[in-house]
């Protein structure tokens, strides 16, 4: 029994040290990426390629999910609001939930599983097949040539995807609330406009999505770069990317929400 207890403590200790180590190394990795980002300005074509694979290829899932989330919000919101006789507030409910929370968070979660996992798998495989080592041997810094363009491509894509998600969601809410159920068209929009503030709600939502984009991308890039160069290593790293970045998104969302909307 005592051995098992000691063993348990040892495991906790090991996990803690490992976790702190990974955080330190990934922070260094992040700073290194920022330092080597000059190439992205000199050769924007590299970033454009990555915006394509991170942003454009995530469009379908973002647009479809946004539409459905908005439609569900419209239905559920209407059910609840009509009990209090304030169906006109449906626009406020849909817009605020999307712009403040669901847009940035759900878009980032989808982004983590669509683009984040792809980034990890791609870099992990490049490492496993010695492409990264080959690049180093050709005197090309892989952080500058491979990592930095992917970082900026994903970080640029994320807020755009989140905005598209929110816009599609509001459109979905409009379809269900106004077109299907018959909430007054004018009230839907005007109530929304009087309640949603540009700086407090929309800008804060954009800031959130940028922070989430950075978090997801750093996790994905680091896990790929750190993956053991085997098939199993890459698959584990891909799983870890999705899990870690999803948890990071939710934790960061709480922190950011507490900071941003405390005063209101």
């Amino acid at each position: 029994m005592p051995e098992r207890v000691i063993g348990g403590f040892r495991k906790i200790g090991h996990r803690t040290i490992d976790g702190v180590w990974r955080m330190g190394v990934s922070t260094r990795f992040f700073l290194l990426t920022l330092m080597h980002s000059g190439i992205c300005l000199r050769r924007p074509q590299l970033v454009i390629r990555e915006i394509f694979s991170a942003g454009v290829l995530s469009l379908i899932i973002i647009i479809v999910s946004g539409l459905f989330v908005g439609m569900v919000l419209g239905l559920q919101g209407y059910e609840t609001l009509q009990t209090y006789g304030s169906e006109e507030a449906l626009g406020i409910l849909v817009a605020l939930s999307l712009v403040r929370e669901l847009g940035p968070v759900v878009a980032a979660l989808l982004f983590a599983s669509r683009a984040g996992s792809a980034i990890t798998a791609e870099i992990g495989l490049m490492k496993a097949t010695e492409q990264i080592a080959a690049m180093e041997m050709m005197a090309v810094d892989p952080i500058a040539r491979v990592v930095a363009p992917r970082f900026w491509g994903a970080v640029i894509s994320m807020p755009l995807l989140a905005a598209l998600f929110s816009a599609m969601g509001i459109f979905g809410g409009y379809l269900v609330g106004v077109v299907m159920i018959g909430v007054d068209d004018g009230a839907f929009w005007s109530q929304m406009q009087s309640a949603v503030d540009f700086r407090e709600d929309i800008l804060n939502g954009v800031i959130k999505s940028v922070v989430f984009g950075v978090a997801v991308t750093v996790v994905a890039l680091f896990e790929g770069y750190d993956a053991p160069p085997t098939a199993e290593g890459v698959s584990r790293a891909t799983t870890r990317t999705v899990v870690t970045s999803s948890l990071a998104i939710l934790a960061l969302d709480f922190v950011l929400t507490a900071l941003m909307f405390r005063g209101v």
Binding site: E130, A134, M137
Partner: peptide, 16 residues
């Protein structure tokens, strides 16, 4: 390294 060429075991060509 710019004056060195390296041939890796399985080529290590860039797959993209």
């Amino acid at each position: 390294r710019r004056r060195m060429g390296v041939l890796f075991q399985f080529g290590a060509l860039f797959t993209d």
